[in-house]
Structures are given as structure tokens and as C-alpha cells.
């Protein structure tokens, strides 16, 4: 995994160049109204596309400087552990599913389902606690926000929550 971190600057720079080109093309297609200020809506985005390219060039430069220094030295480590883990992917999938059903099933039902699913993964084996938390937490939040503070939470197809 340290290999990925070592090469990360090249990947980021490549992404930077692609984004800068796409962004500059999109900026060139912006309409300029007849009565605009002297700068207009395009110039700042053009400058940013150039800035992104400069940052990408600096990244490539830094990559080669570090590679020369690194010969014989310990590999560079990431700040936050090595690589994307299964834990993050599962968390992301559960959160995506939660947002998909959020509006449709309403706050109470979708949150209870999300919490049961997430807790059975993050707090494994404690199913009694998990069910209590999954039921009481959304209910408490609902009573506090929806009933007390008047915040609007989605009601969903069951018309509550």
C-alpha cells in the first residue's frame, strides 16, 4: 500500500490536468451578457484552471524530488492508515442506501432501518442494545426536532416521521 501513497502525486496531478481542461472548456461556453463588468464571468474560471495546472505541475515536481530522496529510505506512509478499507466501503454503501430510502420511507422508518443495519455491522453481537438504540434514537430526535422545534423531517409513504 505505501506504493499507492508514493505514486499518489502523479494520480492527483493527472486528475488535476483533466479537471482543468474540462473546467476551462465549460467556462468557454458560458454566456456573457451584453452589460457585464469588465472582467466578465469567464476570466476567473480561466485563472483557476491555470492555477490547477500549476498545482499539478508542482505535484509532479515534488514526486520526482521525493523519489530521489526516498532511495534507500523508509517508504512514505499515509496520514490516515493504508488505503481504502472494507469498513469504509460498507459504511458508504449503508449511508447511500439510507439516503435513497430517506424521502420515500420517511425519517422514522428509514433511520430505524439504517441504524439496525449499521449497528449490526459496527456494534456486532449486541443486538439487544442495537434494537433499543435504533428505535429510541430516531423517536427521540423526531419528538425533539419535529414536534418541539418545528423542523420538517420527511414523512414518507407511512405519513409519519
Amino acid at each position: 500500500m505505501p506504493k499507492l501513497v508514493e505514486k499518489s502525486r502523479l494520480f492527483i496531478a493527472a486528475f488535476g490536468f483533466v479537471l482543468a481542461v474540462v473546467y476551462a472548456i465549460a467556462a468557454s461556453r458560458l454566456s456573457v451578457p451584453a452589460f457585464s463588468d469588465p472582467v466578465g464571468p469567464r476570466m476567473f474560471p480561466y485563472a483557476l484552471a491555470i492555477a490547477l495546472c500549476v498545482a499539478s505541475v508542482l505535484l509532479i515536481g515534488e514526486h520526482f524530488v521525493l523519489e530521489r530522496r526516498r532511495r534507500g529510505a523508509a517508504p512514505e506512509a499515509a496520514d490516515e492508515g493504508d488505503g481504502v478499507t472494507r469498513v469504509a466501503i460498507v459504511a458508504l454503501a449503508l449511508l447511500t442506501a439510507y439516503y435513497v430510502i430517506f424521502d420515500f420511507l420517511g425519517f422514522l422508518v428509514s433511520t430505524a432501518l439504517f441504524l439496525i443495519a449499521f449497528l449490526s455491522f459496527s456494534n456486532r453481537g449486541q443486538w439487544k442494545t442495537n434494537i433499543i438504540v435504533a428505535v429510541l434514537f430516531p423517536l427521540g430526535i423526531y419528538l425533539l426536532l419535529d414536534r418541539l422545534f418545528g423542523a420538517r423531517l420527511p414523512a414518507g409513504i407511512f405519513e409519519f416521521g
Binding site: R9, I12, G16, L19, Y23, P45, L48, A51, L52, V54, A55, S56, L58, L59, G61, E62
Partner: peptide
């Protein structure tokens, strides 16, 4: 510094 500059450019975009 290049990584921080990259982050600034993305934020401004």
C-alpha cells in the same frame, strides 16, 4: 505545498 495548493484550486473551482 503542492497538495495544499491543489486543495485550494479545487475549493475555488
Amino acid at each position: 505545498l503542492p497538495k495544499a495548493a491543489f486543495a485550494v484550486a479545487i475549493g475555488l473551482i
